[in-house]
Nucleic acid binder design. Structure first.
Lengths: 209, 209
DNA sequence: AATCTCGGCAAACACTTGTTTACTGAATGG
DNA sequence: CCATTCAGTAAACAAGTGTTTGCCGAGATT
């Protein structure tokens, strides 16, 4: 009758969260490949054996973190694409959203940047499968914009990938900037805006060349 | 009288090379942070203690690898910038050179991609200090091109960074493509060319907007 | 109320780890 | 040719590792 899932399951979820959080915390200055089961359980306040009640592997924990991290990223992307408007406002809004996202999900973003080319194959694959899906989504959104009239499927895809790659680069750069120099952060954001403006300029003259 | 540096030093250099090569080999599917001294020396055919005759740290070995990797990258960049020509030929040449570079220095490129956001601070810093220097160098080269007449310092810098980031993204993508799908490699190269063309288009209309 | 499920624990397994030690023996230099 | 330098070694150190085992005791189920 209650909408809760049972105290049993709730406690299990709590432990699972503790493990994920502990992992995320430790991965702030470490690689997934160099993480240890004992290390994680110690940080989470559980016994080593408890880990195996939740994940078979550390790689599995990594994949779970990928899903989490990309869920929030997904929300972010949609919120940028949803609002229509002139190119300039869209650019400003996109950069603002990225900036805020990095600030509010620092751990997740760092995790993605670090493990995207990291040493654990399954995690790597999970990440760029999902980034590919992002590009597809961005591509569909671009297709709806009037500027894209007459663009081929391939052209749209390459533009979408350019945007996604640019977003990733910018996020990575912001990550390191935000925790040291606050002025550096503004400089990076400004650069990103200029770059997006240049791309948008190229876009307007595509095929008209 | 002989131009050799002495059998003594030569043997030491040989061991050092063995360590670097062993490290590079192991880092093909591992992170620097998860690498072990014993692991490296075992792979190199030396005793564990021998390692400390060459490096104080594994991080130091990492930094040495960064220097190696970026030396070859540096040569590559110069070879792209040296040849003048129309925008189209320049783009084709740039992509070709990147493609070849990734094929011929797979281990180095993978190392850079992996450790750029990896878990070892000193290595991370070494890498992006050097990438910053690249951007500066590219910026200077761009300034000499006629298309850049009237561009501010800041604009040149942001364009250079856009190019460098794009190069890094492309190289990373090629890395994974080359060792699986050969058709995928061509698709990535084609996409990169399109993206560079779009950027170059934006460049021509900058400030003329 | 009795039974079952199952998340968590402590302990034990057999290794692997980084680093220091005292040493050996070949190239070096006077 | 004798003394020195020094790259490389084997052995030992304490400390950490992943994973399995049997067990407990609190929810869940009947």
């Amino acid at each position: 009758m209650s909408h809760t899932v049972g105290a049993r399951q709730a406690q299990k979820q709590q432990s699972r969260r503790a493990l994920l959080d502990a992992g995320l915390r430790l991965l702030a200055d470490q690689n997934l490949a160099s993480l240890g089961v004992r290390e994680v359980t110690r940080e989470a306040g559980l016994s080593p054996a408890a880990f195996y009640r939740h994940f078979p592997d550390l790689a599995a924990l990594g994949v779970a973190l990928v899903e989490e991290s990309l869920a929030s990223l997904h929300v972010m992307i949609r919120s940028v694409l949803a609002e229509a408007g002139g190119a300039e406002e869209l650019i400003d809004r996109a950069v603002d959203v990225i900036e805020r996202h990095v600030r509010e999900h620092r751990a997740h973003v760092r995790f993605l940047a670090r493990e995207r080319h990291g040493g654990v194959r399954r995690v790597r694959e999970a990440i760029d499968a999902e980034l590919g899906r992002f590009a597809a989504e961005v591509g569909e959104a671009l297709a709806l914009q009037p500027v894209s009239r007459g663009w081929s499927e391939q052209d749209l895809r390459m533009l979408a990938e350019l945007y996604v790659d640019h977003m990733v680069s910018t996020a990575s750069a912001l990550l390191e900037a935000q925790e040291s120099d606050p002025a550096r952060e503004r400089r990076i954001a400004a650069t990103a805006r200029l770059q997006l403006r240049l791309i948008s300029l190229g876009r307007r003259h595509w095929q008209a060349s």
